[in-house]
């Protein structure tokens, strides 16, 4: 019965005013109304022990700092307990246990599960294996919906709106799953998107095709200077060294995609800068104290969004 309830349409449930018992696997599962509903529901959280007696299992088959800690912090702040692991080496997975069996075991210990896994689609499969709600904290290069909700929340808090903005994405468009998810989520709103990356790290065609189908206005360029006067927000991502076969190439890109005060001076006044973190040296530390820097605010917002999600899916708020 629980399984049948879980499979019921999201939209139907939100009309009924409840996320109770649902999973959060992909940002694509959420309509515009549902996205906005989650962002608005953050106001229902402040200082309450909403999840007393509930247990969250954090299953991190891949390393994570912010996501895992913010979920643990979120659960603790709501009075719940946390169990889990941060590396598959210490679990029976290293003995060859299947994902399905691991999840079935955890299901009996926890009321809700948060999972990160290196294989694409693994978290949806996990959610199908159990009857408790499952939240995707990153599956391979596919989805990381809670990060997207944090990003949307940060943008909405800063600008007071999600419509009418020109947003630049800088860095690795090819492998950066946060960019793919956020671009999709923003397609619900009236925005202009600019993807700024070297040719080698351009946004994959299947994501662009999806944006075209959703009638999103976007451009692709290689040089930030071309558009920096128009951007309300610049979303910077890390260019990973291992993506480049030639280290000389990497050094070249690293230099040209670094944001410091001189870049800020040439940009539209008040342009905000976001970054999902961790950063290596894409953003100079001299920007940290400026009003433009939103990335630590973004990391801080991770807790309130995750508190809201835990409470919504466990049905203690609507």
């Amino acid at each position: 019965m629980a399984k049948i309830l879980k499979q019921r349409n999201y939209h139907e449930d939100v009309r009924m005013g409840s996320f109770k018992g649902k999973d959060l696997i992909s940002i694509k599962d959420l309509s515009k109304e549902e996205l906005l509903h989650i962002l608005d529901a953050t106001s229902k959280i402040k200082g309450k022990e909403l999840l007393k007696g509930k247990v969250l299992a954090t299953l991190f088959f891949e390393p994570s700092t912010r996501t895992r800690l913010s979920f643990e912090s979120a659960m603790s702040k709501l009075g719940g307990a946390v169990i889990g692991f941060g590396s598959p080496n210490i679990t029976s997975i290293s003995k060859g246990e299947s994902l399905h069996d691991t999840l079935k075991m955890v299901e009996s210990y926890a009321n809700i599960i948060v999972m990160r896994h290196p294989v694409d689609g693994s978290v949806r499969y996990a959610a199908e294996s159990v009857s408790v709600p499952v939240i995707n904290a990153g599956d391979g290069v596919n989805q990381h919906p809670t990060q997207t909700l944090v990003d949307l929340y940060t943008i909405k808090e800063t600008f007071g709106k999600l419509d009418g903005l020109t947003i630049g994405f800088l860095g690795d468009m090819k492998y950066g799953r946060t960019v793919h998810s956020l671009a999709y989520a923003l397609s619900h709103f009236k925005v202009k998107l600019v993807f700024i990356s070297p040719e080698e790290l351009r946004m994959p065609e299947h994501y662009l095709e999806e944006l075209r189908e959703r009638k999103v206005s976007f451009t692709e360029i290689e040089d930030l200077e071309e558009v920096s006067q128009q951007l309300d927000l610049l979303y910077v991502t890390r260019i990973q060294k291992e993506r480049f076969p030639d280290p000389v190439e990497y050094e070249r890109f690293k230099g040209s995609y670094r944001i410091d005060k001189s870049v800020l001076l040439q940009s539209k006044q008040g342009m905000k800068i976001m970054h999902p973190l961790p950063r290596v040296d894409e953003i100079s530390m001299e920007l940290d104290a400026t009003k433009n820097a939103l990335y630590f605010e973004q990391a801080k917002n991770g807790v309130i969004i995750r508190q809201t999600l835990l409470a919504l899916l466990l049905g203690t708020i609507r």
């Binding site: 299947s98 994902l99 290196p118 294989v119 694409d120 689609g121 693994s122 499969y125 391979g140 290069v141």
Partner: peptide, 12 residues
């Protein structure tokens, strides 16, 4: 066709 899809990694 994605070799890193769960359906190609576990028996799904």
């Amino acid at each position: 066709f994605n070799p890193n899809c769960i359906t190609n990694v576990e028996r799904v």
